[in-house]
């Protein structure tokens, strides 16, 4: 929503443009024409709202008091930074994103390593693994909340009773471990994503080199740590990065499973609530600006990473 990467680096992409054409002098505008509709569209719907957010963040504006819209200086920012809920939301966003990315990346790596071998029914297993990612996020969150976590008739407690009998423990998963309940449900959906990208990486591995190493007496573990993992690194970085972009913005699971309660409100939910329920437009915008600044800081580093990844992977 803002110009983060105006100029991350001058280094041209390896994919590079085609050779400068003979028609170079035919006018820069004829070149720009095909680009302009998309560019204008994106600027209109991302940059202008963002500038508006900045403007509103300096105003005292609550929809309940429409006659009291005045300039408020930095007070909205002070409010956000002194608000316990806002600081909690920042912390939750970090914990949620980091744990989901790390866990689903490791699970995805494991699943990809298994699927890289050939065995009967491999196609079916691959399809089964992808399925969670293809369930609409709200539907998945509803499934976890009601059909799996529910303390009375959820499947988890049902299975516990089935296995351990009448006296089986019947935990109330969501109220006892609210953040973990959200994390597990998101991990379930994002592991297939990580797996797909890592699997694509595994399958692009030069097998003859691995075979040569094996003949030279390298053990499976040596091949894994010295050849497979280094080869997979850019793929895992890419998967982690793209996963993180999406998980930072998670709204559906937090909204559905806990309604942001029990200390699980992340920043998107906090902003949604401040704006949609509390109608404090000024404070919601200030929180939005803070989120964007935070993301810019992270993205400046991440974009460099993604740059090298695309550089290497596209050719």
């Amino acid at each position: 929503m803002s110009p983060v990467a105006q100029n991350p680096t001058k280094n041209p992409l390896a994919t590079g443009p085609a050779k400068p054409s003979r028609m170079q002098r035919a006018g820069a505008w004829s070149r720009r024409m095909p680009l302009l509709p998309a560019l204008i569209f994106v600027i209109l719907l991302t940059q202008i709202p963002f500038v508006t957010t900045i403007v509103i963040s300096f105003m005292k504006w609550n929809a309940y008091y429409p006659d009291e819209i005045v300039f408020a200086g930095l007070s909205n920012f002070v409010k956000v930074f002194t608000d316990v809920n806002a600081r909690q939301a920042i912390l939750v966003t970090i914990i949620l994103t980091v744990s989901v990315v790390v866990i689903s990346l490791l699970l995805g790596l494991g699943a990809a390593l298994l699927l890289d071998h050939s065995f009967p029914g491999r196609g079916i297993v691959r399809t089964m693994m992808i399925t969670p990612f293809l369930v609409v996020p709200v539907a998945a969150a509803l499934l976890w909340k009601h059909a799996l976590y529910n303390p009375v008739y959820g499947l988890f407690n049902g299975l516990l009773r089935l296995v351990f009998g009448e006296n089986a423990p019947q935990p109330d998963w969501i109220s006892e471990h609210p953040l973990w309940a959200v994390i597990v449900a998101i991990v379930w959906q994002w592991t297939p994503f990580m797996m797909l990208i890592i699997l694509a990486g595994l399958q692009s591995r030069p097998l003859d080199v691995v075979e040569a190493a094996r003949i030279d007496g390298a053990t499976g573990r040596q091949i894994f740590t010295h050849m497979t993992l280094p080869h997979l690194r850019p793929f895992m970085e890419l998967a982690a990065l793209l996963g993180a972009i999406n998980i930072v913005q998670n709204f559906d699971h937090v909204f559905t499973i806990t309604s942001g309660g029990l200390g699980t409100a992340n920043l998107p939910y906090y902003i949604y609530q401040t704006f949609y329920t509390a109608h404090d437009y000024g404070r919601a915008s200030a929180a939005g600006v803070i989120v964007v600044i935070g993301t810019i800081i992270i993205a400046t580093f991440a974009l460099r990473t993604v740059f090298t990844i695309f550089n290497e992977e596209t050719r």
Binding site: A5, R31, I245, P268, I271, G288, F307
Partner: peptide
Amino acid sequence: RPVKKWSDVLFFFLSTKFMPIVAGLLP
């Protein structure tokens, strides 16, 4: 047939993907 500064434009597009869309919700 690339425009001048095509890589800047490309990264501008990508950067909009990095921004939490929630920041544009209210406007």
